[in-house]
Simulated scan of single mutants.
Amino acid sequence: MTAHLTGTREEWLEARIDLLAAEKALTRQSDAVAQQRQALPWVKVDKTYRFVTEAGEAGLADLFAGRSQLLVYHFMFGPDYTAGCPSCSLIADGFNGIHVHLANHDVTLTAVSRAPLDKLVAFKRRMGWSFPWASSATSDFNFDFNVSFTEEQERQGTVEYNFQREPQMDWSSNPVVAGFAAQSGTTAARYLRERPGMSAFIREDGAIYHSYSSYARGMDAIWSMYPWLDRAPKGRNEAGGMWWRHHDAYEAPAPETAMFPHSCCG
């Protein structure tokens, strides 16, 4: 018998209506936060950044692809990685279905990483992705937007991530970090010199402005998996640690015929 609370349909409905009030309050709060986010002052981008894309060399303005708004996902794929970060890959799995819709609403969505373009293209093909992905290997873009760090910054304890100075820590023995680093084909130290994040830009009257950036759990909302897990009976169910991997690295699920034998399906 389950250890979880059980009840009648009437008791469930009463509890669900109570929860609905909390969900509606959260929705209204989310709307208010979105307005506050959009009211942030814009900062003009005067520095020249160069990228390498599948269409050739590009500047930041080129990444807009003719639209007025640009959303950049800072994808953890360092120069020495052999594969993209599993967490970033999970997030990017949700981009294929939405980047076309965003493009038709005056918003370009692109990923940017420090790995050379040939690595990005090869991994993109492996994952079956279609969204644009640019290499920032030849510019300071990742460093200026606080998602890439140097070994010297680590030694000096001057890594600033998620709007705060990060305490010096030895992550080499952390099994989660070690596991993700191994899946990315790099060491734990090199893995953590790249960090996830997203940044928003707008182009107006020929000028480009930075409007927003978010890091770490500030990006929970763009993990397409989590809104579903938060509604599953066991929630995120991550007491055993970070469980995900590249989508082509899971064991193949049992065929449907094993779940629904012909004898019961007619």
Rank of each mutant, 00 (worst) to 15 (best):
A65G: 05
A92L: 12
Y161C: 01
Y161L: 05
V147T: 06
V147N: 02
Y49T: 01
F141T: 12
A103R: 08
Y73K: 02
D80V: 12
S113V: 04
M127V: 00
F145D: 01
S136C: 11
V100W: 02
H105W: 08
A65D: 15
A58L: 10
T108N: 15
F51R: 00
V107R: 02
L63H: 12
M76W: 13
L102G: 10
E160N: 08
H105S: 15
L70G: 03
P116L: 14
S113R: 05
A103N: 11
T150H: 10
A92Q: 10
D80W: 09
V121N: 08
D106R: 05
E160P: 00
D80E: 15
T108V: 12
M76R: 13
A58Y: 10
A61R: 09
G78R: 01
S87Y: 06
R155Q: 14
D93L: 13
Q156A: 15
R67I: 09
H74G: 03
R125Y: 06
V147L: 05
G84W: 07
M127W: 09
N142H: 12
I98R: 10
Y161R: 03
G78F: 00
A92G: 12
P79V: 12
F131L: 05
S136Q: 08
M127C: 06
E54V: 03
R67H: 14
P79Q: 15
V45N: 07
A115I: 05
L70S: 01
